[in-house]
Nucleic acid binder design. Structure first.
Lengths: 227, 227
DNA sequence: TCGTTCTGTAAACGCTCAGTTAACTATTGC
DNA sequence: GCAATAGTTAACTGAGCGTTTACAGAACGA
């Protein structure tokens, strides 16, 4: 998940809460001094600077960022409504700005837009379980860092199972939930697809899908179960 | 004094008054039809698009601007507060946006900022991915340092895909987002354009657009995927 | 106006995958 | 240990999907 630099410490409560709810990690920084100690290679997706303490301080901090003491990009400014006039546009310190109090959907949109433009889009939706990771946006599956080449139905079945780890599903349930509600096919279909999945997962991981005799199938084996 | 394109005709009263008081000249345009009759050499400083009539209409108009029927840049969107959710900013139709009702000082700041930045060539306009580079302003595409001669629709499709590397899009999604919101055409159209793109990219790079069977198409192949 | 290029449609083709069947193997209960 | 039941595996076929090519109309530029 993307990590954003947030200045100052403490930041406005509304900003922090909002960033949390949008799913970003946040690294708080206070004084410019502290900031210079940050390591660039930590890979910040961007920085959000708030003027809740002092507008001048924030601008100074932004200048130090722009001097590449910390190569962080993009930079979003959160500025108090009544301080807007202080924005000196000739000084290109910020990539965008937001008025405080913040409108949540606008804030969300502006961050997404900035991150996208700098090529740091929000981390994609990923289903992870043990050695398996499914990227729901790219339709890619990775097992043990090795890409799995799955067909459509294989992917759909695995996705469904992996989204409910540990839970046992009957063939009938799988047919209706993965294949579709009005699907009428033989229950053996499920078996065959499970078989194909297991084959592609290889000996090492084929037990990621377990057979529960007389009941159905379950995803996730004991060694990967947390609880 | 700078002249701005203002859409639609009539625009929201608040916007027109504000632009007047800020000292801009304004050229009103209504339908896309009228817009196509505008002469590029008139030298617009930028365009301001308001959603007071219909959000979709405005988006479509923006798209036609981006199709360089009018090479106008930058483009600022004025969008109704409650329509904010419709903004998919990643589409890059707009350089910035403002909520309506408008806060005068913010509006002023955003316009000045946009004009200032474009005046210094600061606006981002290159999309790069692996061996491919798209210049969004000049509509040039380069693959492996070799210029790609693309038609308009080819360019638009490639741009959209390249702006969302790795993500899979269904034909329907591509039709609505590349061709336009109310476009109703056969899904095969997408296939044919993909085919033409691949042909122009040559054997070496045709797999830059991957087919995801039963789902759609994806830009970017594994060897260029970072994560 | 004419010729060219671009765009979308249609149809034929070829290939992949989903689903069936059936033989085979494993597990359970007697 | 045997029979019954359940799951596995392999082979096969048809349908579905994507590719490719050809073509016609629209848009464009000379």
């Amino acid at each position: 998940m993307d990590t954003l630099l947030l200045y100052p410490d403490p930041p406005p409560e509304e900003v922090q809460k909002l960033l949390d709810s949008l799913g970003y990690n946040v690294k708080l920084v206070s004084a410019p001094l502290a900031a210079s100690r940050l390591e660039p290679e930590d890979g910040w997706a961007g920085a959000i600077l708030c003027t809740n303490v002092s507008v001048d301080d924030t601008f100074n901090f932004a200048r130090s960022l722009r001097k590449r003491e910390i190569p962080v990009h993009p930079v979003l400014l959160v500025i108090d409504q009544k301080e807007l006039v202080k924005l000196d546009l000739r000084e290109d310190l910020f990539d965008d700005f937001c008025k405080s109090p913040i409108d949540p959907s606008e804030f969300d949109a502006r961050i997404k837009r900035l991150l996208f433009r700098t090529g740091r889009g929000l981390s994609p939706k990923i289903v992870e379980y043990g050695p398996l990771a499914l990227n729901l946006e790219t339709y890619q599956a990775v097992l043990d860092t090795r890409p799995l080449d799955l067909t459509f139905m294989e992917y759909e079945l695995l996705k469904f199972l992996a989204c409910h780890p540990g839970k046992v599903f009957s063939r009938e349930t799988l047919l209706s939930r993965v294949w579709g509600y009005e699907y009428y096919g033989g229950a053996r279909t499920v078996d065959v697809h499970v078989r194909r999945l297991r084959a592609k997962m290889g000996e090492r991981h084929e037990q990621l899908i377990e057979t529960v005799r007389s009941v159905g199938y379950r995803f996730g084996q004991s060694r990967w179960m947390s609880s």
